Simulated assay, not measured.
Amino acid sequence: MGRLTDKTAFVAGAGSASTGVSNGMACAVAYGREGARVFAVDRDATALNVTLAALSEDGVTGTGHVADMTDEAQVAAAVEVCVRAYGTIDILHNNIGTATAGGPVEISEDDWDRVMEINLTTAFLACKYALPVMTARKSGVISMISSLAGQVDSGSAYIDYAASKAAMDQLAQAVAIDNAANGVRCNAILPGLIATPFAMAVPSVVAKTAKDTDFNAPVASDLVPMGHLGTPWDVAGAAVFLASDDARFITGTTLRVDGGIGNTIATAGAAA
């Protein structure tokens, strides 16, 4: 405990549905449990309040801020409010994402642009405004919540999501190398099959049949070498580790949190 004492964590995409725990909510709570002050940001006030309630229940010092992270002016303002409240930003956590089902033929250009803006531009803008705060102090950690889909072909028809996450991995590596001498680390976390409200709500790439539209947890669990889905707390554990001094020599890396499924998919692809 206390690995992040006196740190300030800016968590973009911190909200959660009341029906479950999102990756953003779990990471915000986990940062707080390790002693960080949490500045939780989401464009959905209702979802944000779910996370703020969880932080309060844990006795975590936290502030909620409603902002659309695709809007540059709102991002700049959010960073300013956080710094004004807590003095700095030690941890930037980018956890915003969406997807549209389909390949290049099925999805529209508007769908493509929307997913790129939500998944990738939000991370770019957050870095744009948080990095000067970090480099001025020669200290900071950035974590991008990417996806296994950006590295391996799972056969899913979410081409915009996969492409945006692959780009996020490269963004993380570029930010890491460009700012290493300034004391800022940056890494991407790649969740695999994680039981989040978002995953349960979208048409599944691991449905029992091609006609199924709901997330099929038993089938998904069978695909994971460890035999079960991951939870948002698994993602949060990785985030806390990377944000802590335990990971002080780790930057520019991609960390899979996937129960081993990425290796089996890659092997199957190579065999094919």
Results as ranks from 00 to 15, higher is better:
residue 126 A to D: 00
residue 95 N to W: 01
residue 67 A to V: 12
residue 91 I to H: 06
residue 188 A to T: 00
residue 78 A to Q: 08
residue 130 A to Y: 00
residue 145 I to G: 09
residue 182 N to M: 07
residue 154 S to N: 12
residue 66 V to F: 13
residue 99 A to L: 15
residue 141 V to I: 09
residue 173 Q to Y: 03
residue 174 A to F: 10
residue 109 E to H: 14
residue 119 N to E: 02
residue 133 V to N: 04
residue 113 D to R: 12
residue 167 A to K: 03
residue 104 P to H: 04
residue 137 R to V: 11
residue 158 Y to M: 10
residue 111 D to I: 12
residue 191 P to Y: 05
residue 116 M to W: 13
residue 82 C to G: 11
residue 168 M to N: 01
residue 59 G to M: 06
residue 145 I to N: 14
residue 133 V to I: 13
residue 68 D to T: 04
residue 97 G to N: 10
residue 178 D to F: 02
residue 70 T to Y: 05
residue 116 M to N: 13
residue 184 V to Y: 08
residue 141 V to T: 07
residue 188 A to D: 00
residue 96 I to D: 00
residue 133 V to L: 05
residue 134 M to C: 08
residue 136 A to G: 13
residue 166 A to N: 03
residue 182 N to S: 12
residue 99 A to E: 15
residue 72 E to C: 03
residue 119 N to A: 06
residue 70 T to C: 14
residue 88 T to V: 05
residue 114 R to A: 14
residue 87 G to E: 05
residue 167 A to T: 02
residue 187 N to T: 03
residue 84 R to F: 05
residue 64 G to V: 05
residue 58 D to E: 15
residue 154 S to I: 11
residue 82 C to D: 11
residue 160 D to F: 11
residue 119 N to H: 06
residue 134 M to R: 03
residue 170 Q to G: 00
residue 77 A to M: 11
residue 169 D to I: 09
residue 95 N to P: 07
residue 159 I to Y: 13
residue 70 T to R: 14
residue 190 L to H: 08
residue 59 G to P: 06
residue 65 H to W: 15
residue 176 A to H: 03
residue 80 E to T: 14
residue 167 A to G: 08
residue 155 G to C: 13
residue 117 E to K: 14
residue 75 V to H: 10
residue 188 A to P: 01
residue 130 A to E: 00
residue 145 I to Q: 04
residue 152 V to E: 00
residue 155 G to P: 11
residue 171 L to H: 00
residue 163 A to E: 02
residue 80 E to L: 10
residue 59 G to E: 00
residue 166 A to R: 03
residue 122 T to F: 05
residue 91 I to P: 06
residue 130 A to I: 03
residue 67 A to G: 12
residue 131 L to P: 01
residue 66 V to R: 11
residue 112 W to G: 13
residue 128 K to M: 02
residue 71 D to N: 15
residue 91 I to C: 07
residue 149 A to K: 09
residue 108 S to Q: 09
residue 115 V to S: 13
residue 152 V to W: 05
residue 179 N to E: 04
residue 65 H to N: 14
residue 189 I to K: 01
residue 165 K to I: 04
residue 182 N to W: 02
residue 110 D to F: 08
residue 180 A to H: 01
residue 93 H to F: 15
residue 167 A to D: 02
residue 59 G to H: 04
residue 112 W to V: 07
residue 56 S to L: 07
residue 106 E to A: 15
residue 68 D to W: 09
residue 133 V to P: 04
residue 63 T to L: 15
residue 71 D to L: 11
residue 114 R to E: 10
residue 97 G to I: 05
residue 150 G to I: 06
residue 102 G to M: 12
residue 100 T to Q: 14
residue 137 R to F: 09
residue 163 A to V: 14
residue 127 C to K: 00
residue 111 D to L: 07
residue 106 E to M: 12
residue 157 A to Y: 12
residue 114 R to S: 14
residue 74 Q to T: 09
residue 75 V to C: 14
residue 75 V to D: 03
residue 97 G to E: 09
residue 187 N to L: 01
residue 177 I to W: 06
residue 134 M to P: 04
residue 91 I to S: 06
residue 73 A to W: 01
residue 77 A to W: 02
residue 173 Q to I: 09
residue 92 L to E: 05
residue 153 D to G: 12
residue 57 E to V: 08
residue 99 A to V: 15
residue 177 I to K: 12
residue 68 D to S: 11
residue 133 V to W: 08
residue 115 V to G: 13
residue 79 V to E: 07
residue 126 A to Q: 01
